[in-house]
Amino acid sequence: MAETVFHTEKLVKTYHTGGTEVHALSGVDLDLYASELTVLLGPSGSGKSTLLNILGGLDHATSGLVEFRGRNLTTLSDRALTRYRRDHVGFVFQFYNLVPSLTARENVQMVTDIAPNPMSAEEALARVGMSDRIDHFPAELSGGQQQRVAIARAIAKRPEVLLCDEPTGALDSATGVQVLEAIREINEDLGTTAIVITHNAAIQAMAHRVVRFQDGNISSVATNATRIKPSEIVW
């Protein structure tokens, strides 16, 4: 059995907006394993992104337990969470979030500047097939290219976990495939644990496991006996 990377117990997250309480997560129990590629599926507001934010140290849980390799994240200070993100986590967002005033290489360097044991920006970009556009600004890149730069930026620090929130949400299918290809390669070649949120049920076929969300809770967890390559996904 592979090592447990994330372990959550009775994880609750409640938002207070305008006098009403919104239960984004209501008691989630989940284990995620090393080198696994997990897809989180579910409709908007089902709690996937909230869980990802808490796992990534971007947000605090209201109650319950979250452990990263046996270390309790719920008790960490903001400073310690920052350290945790810097050392262990790579993020990929739906809207790429590249800094427009920096080139592809420089966007990756934002991470390599502060990470303890990073690969070079050139190597990270080569891994996602962006070697030929290394000195281009985001405005000079297509959506898929921008997202690949964002992935390069996420993996450059050699993170133990790669958290991807709707990485293909803003992309057409052809470019989406390229991005998923990049994520799969990182997962397989570097052994990075990858968690991918998606609306797109077709993507689940490339995962080791698929976790479905409904109303702030896990409705099902399924293990894929056979996985397919992103290029075989049709949507």
Binding site: G56, L58, D78, R79, T82, R83, R85, R86, D87, V89, F91, F93, N97, V99, M110, V111, I114, A115, R153
Partner: peptide, 12 residues
């Protein structure tokens, strides 16, 4: 971008 920098591990 500030959110991103924080996600990447930049300190306050």
């Amino acid at each position: 971008e500030i959110g991103l920098l924080k996600a990447l591990g930049y300190t306050d």
